[in-house]
């Protein structure tokens, strides 16, 4: 696999925008959103009776985090205009640095959606990780799917370049969905391990529940920081858990997160990794600063959305037409529920 950002991504982006018959460009009804990895509901899970207390380990350790975001910036007569961006933040010698990729803007239509996705896969990965017969019927998922593709590529890059560090992902280490091919996730984890890295995945939101309560909500009153192991998780096939699941309460604030740690690592190393994370990266609200920065840096602001719309109209001559917002039209002031304006 090429370790440089493939030119193909850019070319495809431009190619998709140059589609000549796309005069309409609708601006309202935007949604600023981030990819949220689907988490497979598991049954009969339990929380370990005793937490694993953590002590911050000051041993200098490089920390790298990866995150992506996507947004629909408008609609055309034929499809949607989307933007994706990825960010990699690393902390070394007490200094943060970042590399940001994008925004890449794609004009996805019913005609080109499969082609765009497959071409991107081919450009990024030299192995057929993805299911070429995957269902592309719902165009609404295309922004997330393209962003996930970019995210996997960046995760692979980080896993292949970092040594003796901690790699932080946003989401879980569950594989088997269309965007999380098991072989690809396994390869990423293998590559990380080969370089003596440990992969930790933090989920901002989880769907795992015990007795109807989210696992991050029903915590015993132990003093943070600690890990609480989630036992007996059994996902439905073809989903696979490539990490062991914990509830991580890293700060005294009332926030806890689902944390997946590479399954192939020993418990001692897993605990050691979280302790090194605590010793090297602030986690004021129980969430690592490096990952928080990656999230912040890739997320699109309203200002950037306007700029991308400006780019699309100026560079590619898309005429801006405001299509009426049906929610507003029908429900007046009560029609704001689905809009983020």
């Amino acid at each position: 696999m090429d370790t440089l950002l493939p030119q193909r991504f850019t070319e495809l982006s431009i190619h998709s925008l140059k589609d000549e018959n796309t005069p309409l460009f609708q601006l309202n009804q935007q949604q600023i959103q981030q990819t949220t990895n689907p988490q497979q509901q598991t049954h009969n899970i339990k929380l370990a009776p005793h937490p694993i207390p953590l002590k911050p380990a000051r041993e200098p350790t490089a920390i790298a985090a990866v995150d992506t975001s996507n947004i629909k910036i408008g609609e055309t007569a034929k499809g949607i205009l989307i933007a994706v961006r990825a960010a990699n933040v690393w902390k070394q010698n007490k200094h943060y640095q970042y590399a940001r990729f994008g925004p890449f803007i794609f004009h996805v239509t019913e005609e080109n959606k499969k082609q765009v996705y497959n071409m991107l896969q081919n450009a990024y990965f030299d192995q057929p990780y993805y299911d070429r017969h995957a269902d592309y019927s719902n165009m609404a998922f295309m922004p997330m799917r393209i962003a996930a593709l970019l995210e996997r590529w960046l995760q692979t890059m980080v896993a292949k370049t970092l040594n003796n560090g901690l790699i932080l992902f946003d989401g879980s280490l569950t594989s088997g969905s269309g965007d999380t091919p098991t072989r690809l996730i396994k390869d990423i984890l293998d590559n990380a391990r080969k370089r003596n890295n440990i992969t930790l995945a933090f989920s901002k939101m989880t769907t795992l529940r015990i007795n109807g309560h989210l696992i991050t909500d029903t915590l015993p009153s132990y003093k943070a920081p600690y890990l609480l192991e989630v036992t007996n998780p059994k996902p439905k096939p073809p989903m696979l858990l490539l990490g062991d699941i914990y509830v991580a309460k890293l700060a005294n604030e009332n926030y806890a997160f689902r944390l997946d740690i590479d399954k192939e690592i020993s418990l001692e190393k897993k605990v050691g990794a979280v302790e090194r994370l605590l010793g090297n990266d602030p986690a004021e609200q129980g969430y690592p600063e490096t990952l928080r920065l990656a999230h912040i840096l890739c997320t699109f602001t309203a200002n950037e959305v306007i700029a991308m719309q400006h780019f699309a109209t100026r560079r590619y001559g898309l005429k801006i037409v405001n299509r009426p917002d049906m929610h507003r039209l029908l429900f007046g002031p009560f029609g704001r529920g689905e809009s983020f304006q």
Binding site: T10, V89, Y98, A99, I105, F311
Partner: peptide, 13 residues
């Protein structure tokens, strides 16, 4: 502290 970094912005947005 200001975060130092690099932006790969091929579309020049």
């Amino acid at each position: 502290e200001l975060v130092q970094g690099e932006d790969f912005d091929p579309l020049e947005i």
